[in-house]
Design a protein around this nucleic acid. Sequence first.
DNA 1: TTGTACGCGTTATCAG
DNA 2: CTGATAACGCGTACAA
Lengths: 334, 334
Amino acid sequence: MTARPTMSDVAAAAQVSVKTVSRVVNGETGVHPGTAAVVTAAINALGFRPNEVARSLRPGYSSQTLGLIIEDLGNPFYSQMARGVEEVAREHGFMVISGSSEEEPERERHLVQSLLRRRVNALLVVPARGDHTYLSRELADGTPAVFLDRPPQNYVADVVVLDNRGGARTATEHLLRQGHRRIGLISGFEEVYTGAERLAGYREALMDAGFPLDPALLRVNCHHPAEAALATEALVTLPDPPTALFTLNNRITIGALQALWTRKAATALVGFDDFELADLLPIPVSVVRHNPVELGRVAAKLVFARLAGDRQPPQTVTLPVQLEQRGSGEQRIH
Amino acid sequence: MTARPTMSDVAAAAQVSVKTVSRVVNGETGVHPGTAAVVTAAINALGFRPNEVARSLRPGYSSQTLGLIIEDLGNPFYSQMARGVEEVAREHGFMVISGSSEEEPERERHLVQSLLRRRVNALLVVPARGDHTYLSRELADGTPAVFLDRPPQNYVADVVVLDNRGGARTATEHLLRQGHRRIGLISGFEEVYTGAERLAGYREALMDAGFPLDPALLRVNCHHPAEAALATEALVTLPDPPTALFTLNNRITIGALQALWTRKAATALVGFDDFELADLLPIPVSVVRHNPVELGRVAAKLVFARLAGDRQPPQTVTLPVQLEQRGSGEQRIH
DNA sequence: TTGTACGCGTTATCAG
DNA sequence: CTGATAACGCGTACAA
């Protein structure tokens, strides 16, 4: 109930000046041990805790805070990214303020502004769709920004992404190598960067191998497992059905699996994104997996390099992904 | 690269005093429209953004920030809680600084101190094990704290928990009603609050129904799915094996399921905690489910009630859980 | 070894 | 309607 004690409260209690208290608090040299003891006693008696807000207002000091904007804190992929960011931040004595953009551009802008008003040292952003030129104005003072999972539109800065295209190529080539020629593809939002890249990787693999891409095998805009299940159902009941499926994210993979199980279809399947239980299912699911925590870590390290004065041109880091062969993707065509 | 412009920069550019700029920025009445226009123009020209840090230093103002300490931001259960907290915070114009305690008491203390130094308005904490009397000193000024998922030890404050005991009772009674008399139980850390409560619920249900508790059917301290699988294996191969299993958290449920599948055992199963795919598996898994987002929301609302001046004695809110009958728990004994 | 003045960016007070 | 001044809590520069 009492207001939090300040340095001058401590100074008054210890019968010294605020500056002496400051010296003790910051462990500066040149304080008489006796005085220091008195001050320390007063600090403990009053329960004084230095006010980081006041400190960060002073020139040369900063809030020691990172701003993190992601699509949804509750989504495991992003929350693991956040975890990676937090780890690196802690190593530097920083804390993280985070917010969910809900993939809405206005919300993102609002969050950017709120965070900058709080004078975060840097921004880490999973960019929502839409134009990002507004950032030039917001970050004109040199506050670094690093983008995660996808690049922003019309703003040049450091970006850390997964090798979406490469992973999709690998998955598709793997299925081709098992003898599959008709490989169905189910994707989520078409316009999202990661989805587009993965689709491109699938296309490239087919082209390079000299096989045609049958548009009838493509199902896009499946946002829920249920829609993916329907799409799978539709593909499997085609006159000339695919012998394998490539599902572009884990929600889709889950929906597809359910449809395949109820149909007892022996269609091979490789999914992008790992998921819990994938390796424990009766037929373990082959996936292209990656490391969201590492993504967060790498982005945070980039941020701290910038804060340390790194003036290199903005770079794009592409993190490798791994094809995990567990069974569902290794069913050869007879 | 330029330092961020301040109010006095704007004032100079607009040929007015800082106070006038302040008035315009805060939309105060009593400013000549002409002057306001000039000031607004200067603000836009310079890209001025008010410094919330400086503002929060002033008496009567605050950082408009909540501190959140959870076990692990990367864990879906906790990250969804964080999501709920964030939602309510945003409604109040607050932001959230979060940190992971890793279930280590010293880390928690360190986080508490860091957050209080940053003058967060309130603390939301998933308490690590160990004594929490230290909080009396830290929060002597009246900064509210609310605890999530489990109560702290030796500190009285608002707490929001799930109905762990009731959920476990319900699950056990459900299995008893299906005719099961030998119900195996697999749990994680024995000393964790939630686990202890769930175990107690199981015990109570058996006692109340007048059935003995066979210690041979209890397996504790399974921290990974693999350990749970081994425990399941051991239970199923008992001379007089259980006909049903009650698994105390989702990691354990997953491990148990795998063991049952490989063994093709027809043991009934109910798990505490829902998990992705639970409803999509060939035999859908019955679970006691709950709503982590709601838990976060309720806790945050409690915090804001306290911040608004609510002086009621600390309360414990117990959130209901639901038994979701999907199939695995409804296999009657022949 | 210790203390005094000043400034960080903002807002409240009170005068013009 | 507008502005000068003090203050928020702390640390730097410079004395004493």
